[in-house]
Structures are given as C-alpha cells and as structure tokens.
Design a binder for these strands. Structure first.
Lengths: 201, 201
DNA sequence: CCTTATACCGAACGATCGTTCGTTCTGTAC
DNA sequence: GTACAGAACGAACGATCGTTCGGTATAAGG
C-alpha cells in the first residue's frame, strides 16, 4: 500500500497536474519539461515521472486536465440557462470570462495545443482534435436547438456558426494577448454575439 | 573576401532561411533546432550558426522572412485591386489561398509564433506583436477606405472589423488543419466576407 | 606571390533533455 | 515482528541542446 492514503495520493497527483497545467499553459505542452516541473514542485525528476510512467503520458494527463478545466468553467456553468439561444449566450459569456480571467495563466490551453499539434501527428494531436471536435459538436447542438426554438434564422448552417464562434474565440484571445490589447476580448465577445445572431449588447 | 561572390552568399543564406522557415512552420519557431536544421541542410552546426551569430538572431531572421513571405503572397498581390472594398475582397481571397496553399507546410507561421510568444516576453514576442499590429493597421486602413467610399456601413468600427477578420483567419485555419476539416477554410472565407459586409458568394 | 577576409568544418564545452536503475522510507497486512 | 507495496530519491545513462574555438580551404586585393 502507498505510504499515504489513496485519497491523499490522488490529491497530490492532482496538485501535480494542476501545476503542470499552469506551466504548460505558458511554455506549451511540448515545452513542458520534467526537470523544470520537478524543480517547481520541489521533487526529483524520477519521482515525478514515476507518477505517469512516461513524458507523453504526463502530457496526455495534463491535456486532459486542461480540457476538464475548460469544460467545467465554460460548459458546466452555462447549463442552468435553458437550452437554445439563452444557453448559447451564457456559453459565450462564460467563454469570454474564461479567456479574460486567470483560469490559464498563459492563455487558452486548447488553442496552444491546437497550434502545437496541428501539423504534427501523434496521440496528442489526436486527443486535441477530439476535444475540439467534441466542443464544436456541443456548440452545434445548442445552435440547432436555438433554430428549432425559432430564436435563430433557419437559413444558416449550425456547424458554420459553431466553427465561426470557435475561430473568433481562439483567434481573438491570442491576438488580444499578444498585442496587449485590453479591448480585444470585448471585440471578440461582440463578434461572437453577432455571429450567433444575438443583438450586440 | 568570401570564397563565393556576395550575390551567391546572399542566395545561399536565403536558401538557408527558406529551409528554416519551412521547418519552423511545422516545429514552431521555438522548436527550431540548430542541429536539426544543419542536418537538413547538410552542413555543420557551427557553419550554420556562424551565418547568424546567435540562435535568437536566426529565429528573428526566420520570423522576418516568414512575415515577408506572407506580405508578398497576400498583401502585395491584392494591390492591383482598387482601394477600399474591392481590395479588401482581394485580400481575403489571397489570404484564404495562402492558408489553403502550401506557402507554409505547417500552417500560418505568424499564428504559430503568436501562440508561442503571447505569454512569453522577449524580442521575438515584440517582433511578432509588431507584425500583427502592422497587419491589423493595413486591414483597418482598407476598411476605412471602403467606408469612405460608401461601400461599407459607417456605423461599424474599422478596427473591430480588422480584428474580427484576423481572428477568423488565424483561428479558422488552425481549427481546420487540426480537425482535418476540408470545408473549414470555405467556412472561414464565408465568415470573413460576412464580417466585411460582403454578400456571401 | 603573398596577405587577408570569409565560409565552413570538426571537436569539444557545459547544460539539460528523458529515462533507467538501485535504494530508502513509510505505511498497511499478515 | 516480519513481509510487502508503493512513493520518492539520488545517481547515472546516452542523446541533444546552443555555443566556442582552432584549423582549413577559397577567392579577391596588393
């Protein structure tokens, strides 16, 4: 048995992953380094890697945790709005808050991973693509609901709108952060509302 | 004097940079490695780095060359369209062609650099930000011209539209490439035309 | 012919990379 | 009390990182 209880071990592992997520959000998932992370956590390289077995397994765990963090702060908190346009509106607001806030110190994690792996094959690319596709599907589902409710024009393709929202959010947050433009996310929010057929408020 | 003529040296240096741009477009500017690039070029590490002096100087030269490649294939080729909305339309088409084509084997270079440096200070971040700001200004200038010509509604902010076009292009190309979505860039083009006030054709 | 400047090479530098060992420590089970 | 499981450690591995240095070949200027 472990020298700590199972619950404590899990908590320690999750704290490890949380630190890794923060570090990788700045340095990138590929720039994540066992030595650097071990130093930040005050433990040895071998002790750290022993928790995952592999560097790639660690990266996968970090990616999964980052996706969960996103889902929790954006999707989950919008679920009490009623399905369709209201929920879509809530998603956009939570999304912007998430990009603005300090959920990830280095900007949207999935966007970083998308750029890192969009031209490089491997399991991490597959996992990232899976997450993006799943998110696009979730958006599309809500848009379809809004169209069915008559809250959105029926002549537009739901997948188009979903793709556009995702492009605006990921592209806008990167540009705003890079150019130190404090109004960038306001612009992004307005553009997303316009793309979703919401009056610009 | 060099053992080759100055012109030949320049050509060789430019061929070196061109290779480096292609490699960095896949691996990232930060993932660019002297050893790897030297191997690809069939020369020694010391011979390669001697051309630039520094790795960071090499990265800066590669970034500059990539920006020039973008400017040449997108901005320059749209200059024969008349200023204002026609030129903006031409820019969008060249832009999409550029993202679709094989100008960069690993996707839009500036987008990759933007994500790599958006949370990491240094001269490379500054250079990337400068390029993005300059591009946003160029777009904004054309949009202003279109508004002055009466081709675009005067109630919208030119900087907003420029920012939106940039977000759509960079976000859309990454998502399309990552998810292997062949229609992604068509969607991006349609969204950009809609954002620019052009009828969707 | 001789000097000089330059491009490139090969070798080596210390640092860090990811990974693999053997060991130690600490709880739990028998 | 003894055996065992699991977590973490320190040390070392080969590989690669960026960089530095001395030497060599080449081409132009005198």
């Amino acid at each position: 048995m472990p020298r700590r209880s199972a619950a404590a071990v899990t908590a320690s592992r999750e704290r490890t992953i949380a630190s890794a997520v923060d570090l990788a959000s700045v340095e990138g998932l590929e720039g994540l380094t066992i030595g650097r992370l071990a130093g930040d956590l005050g433990m040895s390289k071998s002790g750290l890697i022993g928790r995952f077995g592999d560097k790639e397994a660690m990266q996968a765990a970090v990616l999964e945790a980052a996706i969960a963090r996103f889902t929790e702060t954006v999707w989950l908190r919008a679920q009490d709005a009623e399905p369709g346009l209201p929920r879509l509106e809530a998603i956009i607001d939570r999304w912007i808050d998430h990009l603005r806030g300090e959920v990830f110190p280095g900007g949207c994690f999935v966007t970083t991973a998308s750029v890192e792996y969009d031209a490089r094959p491997g399991p991490l690319r597959a996992a990232t693509a899976r997450a993006v596709r799943r998110w696009l599907s979730a958006l599309e589902h809500e848009i379809r609901q809004a169209i069915a409710n008559g809250d959105l024009a029926a002549d537009r393709d739901a997948a188009d709108i979903a793709f556009e929202l995702h492009s605006l959010a990921s592209g806008g947050s990167v540009a705003a952060r890079l150019t130190d433009d404090p109004t960038g996310l306001d612009r992004t929010r307005a553009a997303m509302r316009r793309a979703a057929g919401l009056e610009t408020t």
